[in-house]
Computed example of a mutant assay.
Amino acid sequence: MAEEEPIEIGFPMVAAYHGQSALAMAAIVFQAQRAALALLSPEAIPARRDISIVSGHPGPGVRDAFEVVTRAVSRGAYTIDRALPEARFVPGQDISYSFRMAIGDRIAEIALLRGVLPERFFELVFTKARTAAQERELSALKRSIAAEVLAKDPGTLFSIRAG
């Protein structure tokens, strides 16, 4: 719910706002929000102003997907907590592929399931000096992951707990 009336936000809006740099994560977070909002507010459209986010992932695709849907970043209701213990898939990296979305006192804890992101994704993303060929491969992989994630039911991508 926007300020006065409901608005429908589809992934093309998220992609247009974000661009392509982290398209896979933008798609993942778009789907995470669909799952969380269905759990937290199954019978009513929640007001953006009532939603807050804690993200274990500091990336721009994550931030932008949350911002487009909830405006949490610009409202000051978005926090990054790299210490979230769930979905820590990359040894040596201080990053969690998990999120907490709250509407009032209702909280959804969402953690990406292992295997949604292929190992090659992590290999390429965390390569310090990628070659031009690796950049092209990563770009194609991100688009492929985004398409696959968007084609799935959100419940198949995450473990979700309501608290």
Rank of each mutant, 00 (worst) to 15 (best):
M1V: 00
A2S: 14
E3M: 13
E3W: 09
E4I: 13
E5V: 09
P6T: 00
E8N: 04
G10V: 03
F11C: 00
A16Y: 04
Y17V: 00
Y17E: 08
G19C: 01
A24N: 02
A26K: 01
Q31K: 15
Q31F: 07
A32E: 01
A32D: 06
A32T: 06
A36H: 01
L37W: 06
L39I: 07
L40P: 09
S41V: 12
I45S: 01
P46L: 02
V54G: 06
S55A: 15
P58R: 08
G61N: 10
E67G: 10
T70Q: 12
R71V: 12
R71L: 12
R71F: 11
I80H: 00
E86L: 12
E86N: 13
F89Q: 03
G92N: 02
I95T: 13
Y97D: 11
D105F: 00
A108I: 09
L112M: 08
V116A: 09
L117I: 03
P118F: 04
R120M: 10
V125F: 14
V125W: 02
F126V: 10
A129W: 05
Q134D: 02
E137N: 11
L138N: 10
S139K: 08
A140C: 08
L141W: 10
K142R: 14
S144L: 06
A146N: 07
A147K: 14
V149N: 05
D153S: 15
T156Y: 06
A162I: 11
